[in-house]
Structures are given as structure tokens and as C-alpha cells.
């Protein structure tokens, strides 16, 4: 069993190294400024994790982000462990949606998942507090106290949540999920806690589209903040004033 290094000085040093950018494969650079957080330190509200999607570069036929999420978190796909559920009943943490402007016919495509709202309706309505937002802005379901009432699914404006309709096997150790509980995009919290980047963002970059960005919205020097400052970014259903953590360009 390997123990994580917990010496803070060492971690900080490594954090700076990581800030130089992660080389994941030749020619692919991750635009993410990582701040190493020791394993025994709680997530902090100084950070707010967010994502940015550029719908202009998001490719219509491509679903690399969806596939990567499926593989990472163990839902759906060809080897789905939901064998009895109908397609309407199977979970979807992230989906690709193609839109057409009713007036001018302009078509665009984008990935749609939990928008990690600052004031999430799902957290407001959850009777037990299972639906929760971490200090760093990631919205999660604590399946240990989820009673499966699905009120959060009624309240979510993005239909981002799914309910597991049958008994599951062979879950991923990093992404527990099971019958009778609600689940959704976790922003790959297990990776983020280890300075990683969500699987969808990595896959998008790997596929060469560079349509997804991940980073700290509170840090003005992060790539995502700089990009948002320069080009702006819209929220889906901005009228609800939820201050989403996922923003879209070109929408």
C-alpha cells in the first residue's frame, strides 16, 4: 500500500512544478494551473472549480468527452452495467446536444452536464442534505444519505441528474454508484483532488478540439479566468441567476 506524501513543503514544491503544465502526451498541453492540495487538507472556498466550453470549436460528430466520462466513471457505453433499464432509465452524466437557431438555422453542438451552480436548486430541495456543494464549488450527491426521492431531479433546470434504476456491479473504485440513488457529473472530483483535470476536458484536448477548459474561476491568472475575461462566457438559463460553474462561449 502506498502512502500519499503528506509533507506540505514537498507538496507545495511539487505544486509549482505542476503549475508549469501537465504533459500528458507529446504535443498536448493541459491548460490548467494546478494548486496541489495535501490529501489531509479540506477543499477550500478560495478555489472555485469551473469549466468553459467553446461551442465554436466543439465538433458536431465528436463525443470524446462523453466516452471518456463513461470510461472514467463506469456508466453507459457499450459495456453499460445497466442492463435491465430502458434507454430513458439509463444514467447519463454528460451528453452531447446539437442545437439549431430557429431564426437563422445556425447549428452548434455542445456537451451538457451538471452546471455546478453556485446556488444549486438541487441542493435547496434535497430533504436530507445528500445533494451538496463542496467548498470549492463542486456539486455532488452524498449517496450514503440519499433516500432516492428524486426531488433534485425535478428541480434541476438542466436535467443533469440520473437515478439508478437497477442493481449495479463492477463500479469504478473512484466513482461509487448504486441502485436507488441519484447521481450526476462530479467534475471528476477524485482527479481534481489530486491536481488532475476532468476526464472530459482531457479527452477533448486529446482529440485535438480544445473546446473544453477546466480551472479555478476564483484565480484571475488561471487560463479559464483569462479566457472568460477576454471572450466572455454564457450560462445556460442565465435567467435563473444560478451562477453556474460551467460556462459556454458562442452560445
Amino acid at each position: 500500500m502506498k502512502q500519499l506524501p503528506t509533507d506540505p513543503s514537498r507538496r507545495n514544491f511539487l505544486g509549482k512544478t505542476a503549475a508549469a503544465g501537465l504533459l500528458i502526451a507529446p504535443g498536448v498541453l493541459l491548460h490548467q494551473v494546478a494548486q496541489a492540495r495535501p490529501a489531509d487538507e479540506a477543499a477550500s472556498s478560495k478555489v472555485r472549480w469551473g469549466m468553459l466550453v467553446d461551442t465554436n470549436t466543439c465538433s458536431k460528430g465528436c463525443d470524446a468527452c462523453v466516452t471518456a466520462c463513461q470510461t472514467e466513471n463506469g456508466w453507459g457505453g457499450e459495456h453499460s452495467n445497466e442492463v435491465k433499464s430502458s434507454p430513458e432509465q439509463q444514467s447519463q452524466w454528460i451528453r452531447k446536444v446539437t442545437l439549431r437557431d430557429k431564426q437563422n438555422g445556425h447549428e452548434q453542438s455542445l456537451p451538457l452536464m451538471c452546471q455546478h451552480c453556485e446556488t444549486p436548486p438541487c441542493v435547496d430541495v434535497c430533504p436530507t442534505g445528500a445533494s451538496m456543494k463542496r467548498a470549492d464549488g463542486i456539486v455532488l450527491v452524498d449517496k450514503h444519505i440519499c433516500i432516492g426521492c428524486r426531488y433534485c431531479m425535478m428541480a434541476c433546470p438542466y436535467k443533469a441528474r440520473s437515478f439508478v434504476h437497477e442493481e449495479l456491479h463492477d463500479q469504478k473504485p473512484y466513482a461509487p454508484r448504486g441502485k436507488g440513488t441519484v447521481e450526476s457529473c462530479t467534475m471528476c472530483v477524485h482527479r481534481v483532488d489530486k491536481d488532475g483535470t476532468p476526464a472530459c476536458v482531457e479527452a477533448c484536448n486529446k482529440a485535438g478540439h480544445q473546446a473544453m477548459w477546466f480551472g479555478d474561476l476564483n484565480n484571475p491568472n488561471s487560463d479559464i479566468s483569462k479566457r472568460l475575461k477576454e471572450y466572455g462566457g454564457n450560462q445556460i438559463r442565465a435567467d435563473l441567476g444560478l451562477n453556474t460553474g460551467v460556462r459556454y462561449q458562442g452560445l
Binding site: L4, T17, A68, K194, G196, A199
Partner: peptide
Amino acid sequence: HHPEMSGSALTKDTL
């Protein structure tokens, strides 16, 4: 800097 995550943060499956 993380024993579990040396090198690529993508899983082999994903890649």
C-alpha cells in the same frame, strides 16, 4: 508527485 498518478492522468482505458 502523486504515486497513483505518475505521468498521465488519463486511464489506460480512456486512452
